[in-house]
Design a protein around this nucleic acid. Structure first.
Lengths: 252, 252
DNA sequence: CTGCTGCCTCACGTCGCGTGAGGGTCAAGT
DNA sequence: ACTTGACCCTCACGCGACGTGAGGCAGCAG
């Protein structure tokens, strides 16, 4: 198995040595080993990873996010390639739209027509990272909350997700506890639990105002997926949680 | 004629207020006017300019370069659009190559084959040639020579380029010949070759005065790209050609 | 006249490197 | 055995294109 020095890798991948140093510094790409003198030695696997990194970089992903994507070992290499292909296609369509817009502008110019301000900027709106989880996006559209959540969660690594999962579990068991004790949705404990729930979302996903929290509560009843998880914990819990959220929101 | 506040422009163009402030700071986009209270007021012309800025930004140009491009009033709006379209197309082809490379990688993976390191990074080398063109523009910027060259070469087709390439090759081999024979830069043959070089440029690109030819000679030494091509033909040739050009210019 | 929203100007923080400075390493030639 | 030159190392500061408050004026609504 052959290994490569920084300079060699830099030459092959057409990046600078400094870039490789940087990737090592931030832990994005650390060489497989070092010589006794401290020289970095990259292995074939490192080259593979570098290639992946450059792909995602080319598509405009921040390095931290790339690290998160690549370190998520629940995704197979094949799956990665599929994703990349999808992302590239999305990007291409976006550029084609841009090209079409330019043509449009040329037409308009030749005819001496001027476009409305909104028309001029239409094409820039499309945040090309769509296509990906468009399911949730359809519902929440381009609300600020959703976008904020996207930005934040993109950076989370496995440990973060584990912590969040654990917090959610403890929140849920607290809910079940209060609910099973027979407390009314507008009791102090119920409202406290609802507030904790809201706080958890604010901390980890997006600024969850009382307004938004109310919407969430409604969704726990209307969206079968959510209803299922709560009803699974305890029958009647979805409705109760919904009421508790309303009560808590009203009290603030 | 309506005007817009920063916030309004930000909303229309989907950029942040801070971005507009920044563009104002660096002089890339200053609003047409201000209210007595110091509030920025953008006019329709400013929106047009902003649109152009965003186009070029999307294509990865640094802001300083964008300013240079847009402030070059020798370029008509139509010409701008033509350029943009060209740039977008180039970018699309590049991405399509990337996509093809991904497909290639998928194939290889399915077959259990592993690619050579060089193969893996081939596509990234396609450092799209437009960058050099714009770089040259920065240096030679709005000199008449550059513009003349642009106008003329725009109409050249493949056959023209082939002819020019052939002529250049024969000129270069003549240079190498004279140089390798040990002739001094101020010998008759050397000066003749230099003169032929100048003539070729005048015929195909722009009126190359002796003055300009001298500058070119200097650039063959100062610009690594040119130095490389001549040094590649024969070590020491760059310096020698430079001297020959000077001698030839002096004799006229 | 109080509050709210939008605008202003500093001014420091961030990301992805570029660019030396100062110094060790190692194969090749003399 | 010694020198040279290419390559490597680790700091550490700089830069472009903004993000993100802090502190304060402007203008209107109730």
């Amino acid at each position: 198995m052959s290994t490569y020095s920084v300079g060699q890798v830099a030459a092959i991948a057409k990046v600078t040595v400094r870039t490789l140093h940087h990737y090592d510094e931030i832990g994005l790409l650390s060489p497989g080993g070092r010589t006794p003198a401290g020289y970095r030695r990259y292995e074939d696997a490192d080259l593979d990873r570098l290639q992946q990194i450059l792909f995602y970089r080319e598509l405009g992903f921040p390095l931290e996010e790339i690290a998160a994507i690549l370190d998520d070992d629940s995704v197979s290499p094949t799956e990665h390639l599929r994703r990349q292909h999808q992302l590239i296609s999305a990007r291409i369509t976006h550029l084609q739209e841009l090209a079409a817009a330019v043509e449009h502008a040329m037409e308009a110019q030749k005819m001496g027509i001027s476009l409305t301000p909104e028309e001029k900027f239409e094409v820039f709106g499309a945040d090309y990272q769509e296509s990906w989880e468009s399911e949730a996006e359809q519902r929440w559209g381009n609300t600020d909350a959703w976008q904020q959540s996207q930005r934040r969660t993109a950076r989370y690594d496995k440990a973060d997700w584990q912590r969040i999962k654990a917090e959610m579990d403890s929140l849920n068991s607290r809910l079940v506890e209060v609910f099973s004790a027979g407390s009314a949705p507008d009791s102090a404990e119920a409202m406290e639990a609802a507030e904790a729930h809201r706080q958890h979302i604010s901390d980890n996903f997006y600024d969850c105002t009382y307004e938004i929290h109310r919407c969430l509560g409604a969704m726990y009843l209307s969206d079968p997926r959510f209803t299922a998880t709560y009803e699974d914990l305890a029958p009647g819990l979805a409705q109760w949680l919904h009421d508790a959220i309303l009560a808590n929101a009203a009290s603030h």
